[in-house]
Simulated scan of single mutants.
Amino acid sequence: ESWRELNTMETQVSNGPSGTSLPNGPVISTNGAADDSKTNLIVNYLPQNMTQEEFKSLFGSIGEIESCKLVRDKITGQSLGYGFVNYVDPNDADKAINTLNGLKLQTKTIKVRFSSITRWGGIKQGPRQT
């Protein structure tokens, strides 16, 4: 009985082409030069007083950056202590993780890893788990 319920749910979940668009979101383009998941990093535990310029300069020293954003409070403008970096080359993203993850900046030890959030702010859909 539970198998039948599961099967029904699976059918409801996978209606439509899989992985082409997010609910209420943009269609994810698959014709980009590089796979975002291999170039897009999230950086946590940044010092509160770090500026966008310092952030860009630190990660730009590794390789060419397509975009980077230090996330700030919309009202106060205060850094929220994390940001995103999107490299042009996946090798540079790897290098940034190997070089900068665990780096001590002032009183903080930063954490650098691949981000599952696309530049549009939606969560990436990976292969469906069955």
Rank of each mutant, 00 (worst) to 15 (best):
W3H: 03
R4L: 13
Q12S: 03
V13L: 14
G16A: 06
S21K: 05
P23S: 13
N24E: 13
N24C: 14
G25M: 02
I28Y: 09
N31R: 13
A33W: 13
A34H: 10
D35L: 04
D36H: 01
D36R: 09
K38T: 09
N40P: 07
L41Q: 00
V43S: 02
L46S: 04
Q48W: 12
M50Y: 00
E53Y: 13
F55I: 02
L58A: 02
F59S: 01
S61K: 11
S61Y: 10
I62H: 04
G63L: 04
G63I: 02
I65S: 01
E66S: 10
E66T: 09
S67V: 08
C68M: 03
C68Q: 08
L70T: 01
V71T: 11
I75S: 06
G77Q: 12
G77S: 08
Q78G: 03
L80K: 14
Y82S: 09
Y82K: 12
G83H: 01
G83C: 03
F84C: 02
N86C: 13
D89R: 01
P90F: 08
P90H: 09
N91P: 00
K95R: 09
K95L: 10
A96M: 13
N98F: 11
T99P: 11
N101M: 06
G102R: 02
G102C: 08
G102Y: 12
L103R: 02
K104H: 05
T107M: 08
K108V: 03
T109M: 08
T109E: 04
K111R: 14
V112D: 00
R113V: 05
F114V: 02
S115K: 08
S115R: 08
S116L: 11
R119K: 13
R119H: 09
G121A: 05
G122E: 13
G122T: 15
K124D: 11
K124G: 04
Q125E: 12
Q125I: 15
G126S: 15
R128I: 15
T130A: 10
T130P: 13
